[in-house]
Computed example of a mutant assay.
Amino acid sequence: MRDIERTILSQYANSPSLCAMIAGWNLALDPTSLLDRWYDLVWNMRTAQGFGLDVWGRIVGVSRVLSISSETYLGFAEANDLTEAGFSTAPWYMGRATTTNFALADEGYRQLIYAKALANIADCSVLSLNLIAMTLFAGQGDVWVRDNGDMTMTYIFDFVPTDVQISIIQNSGVLPRPAGVGVSYAIRSAG
């Protein structure tokens, strides 16, 4: 601690034994490095790791563990999700999806926390929804929101999301929508 001498009562300030003991305790119990590590590993979102990110996830309301649908099924574009595929490329849906639980790594979870924090304060305008989508999928390709003009909107991806990203899109609740507006997802075909 700083200014340890100010914490000693004046009647004991001239006692060499007591002052040496307090100085030794101060060196052994100095919380400065602990506070610096706490700030870096828990409080600072840019550098938080493990437990610190789990705390931030609880604060914003998003879990590190996602349920991942690892298969695509025969479907059509009107299915409004990203798990459909065409004939000869995917099996028929048999009534239950094979799912697994997947814990996101720190960097992926940090990105999800940022997106959820933005979603918590978003006004659900197209501008704010685009900001959330671009934050979540930064560096992977273009993604934007299209207002279809009929009380529906579409999140359009200019890249093919991974299974984990599909679960984030469909299962995490991070991509918000305005009240009363239907939402769908589409992958823009190259070419």
Score class of each variant (00 low, 15 high):
34 L>I: 10
141 G>Q: 12
88 S>K: 12
106 D>V: 07
35 L>P: 00
8 I>N: 07
6 R>P: 00
169 I>W: 04
134 M>K: 10
7 T>Y: 15
108 G>H: 04
50 G>W: 13
11 Q>C: 07
112 L>Y: 05
108 G>C: 05
154 T>R: 06
83 T>M: 13
181 V>E: 01
37 R>H: 03
131 L>H: 07
57 G>W: 05
30 D>E: 07
130 N>C: 03
97 A>P: 00
153 M>N: 04
68 I>H: 02
77 A>R: 09
146 R>Y: 11
184 S>F: 06
5 E>T: 11
170 Q>N: 02
17 S>W: 06
23 A>H: 15
59 I>Y: 14
127 L>S: 13
138 A>Q: 13
76 F>I: 06
46 R>T: 13
95 G>Y: 14
90 A>I: 00
128 S>K: 05
41 L>T: 01
35 L>G: 02
48 A>E: 10
104 L>D: 08
186 A>Q: 11
6 R>V: 13
101 N>Y: 09
149 G>H: 08
145 V>G: 00
165 Q>H: 01
45 M>G: 13
178 P>T: 07
141 G>V: 12
175 L>I: 08
82 L>K: 03
125 S>Q: 09
43 W>R: 06
59 I>F: 15
46 R>F: 06
6 R>D: 08
181 V>A: 02
187 I>L: 09
127 L>Y: 03
159 F>I: 09
172 S>E: 10
133 A>K: 00
13 A>T: 01
183 V>S: 03
154 T>I: 10
55 V>S: 01
169 I>A: 03
